[in-house]
């Protein structure tokens, strides 16, 4: 991460990590989560769910920062994010 100046509380900051849960069968393939994930974690998969839509798949799950935007934008309550302690990184300049 690049900063224009070093934040004063940099030693206290942690980059949060999230664990994605995708409820494939409820997905309607709208791709809101894919489009608006700020880290580009998601992509539409090639597989079909039982309704015939392509659910998203996490291609870079380790990049997720638990921002919850996918969960809030999903119109079908088909994706959510849980904060995990494991893999939290300290912020470096």
């Amino acid at each position: 991460m690049k900063f224009w100046r070093t934040p004063l509380d940099i030693d206290k900051l942690q980059i949060p990590r999230g664990e994605l849960h995708i409820l494939k069968e409820r997905c309607k393939g709208c791709a809101f989560c894919v489009e608006y994930c700020p880290k580009g974690v998601l992509e539409l998969s090639e597989e079909f769910n039982s309704k015939g839509y392509h659910p998203p798949v996490a291609v870079k799950p380790e990049e997720c920062v638990n921002c919850d935007l996918c969960e809030m934008l999903c119109p079908d309550f088909a994706i959510y994010c849980v904060r995990t302690e494991a893999g939290e990184k300290e912020v470096t300049t």
């Binding site: 309607k28 809101f32 969960e71 999903c74 119109p75 079908d76």
Partner: peptide
Amino acid sequence: HPMERLLRMDRIPHIWCPTCGLGTTVTA
């Protein structure tokens, strides 16, 4: 799903079309 606490799950999946904005507003 964490939102299930506030939804009547016997009615879900909802009837709204794919890419409709209503589900997002309900989440809000």
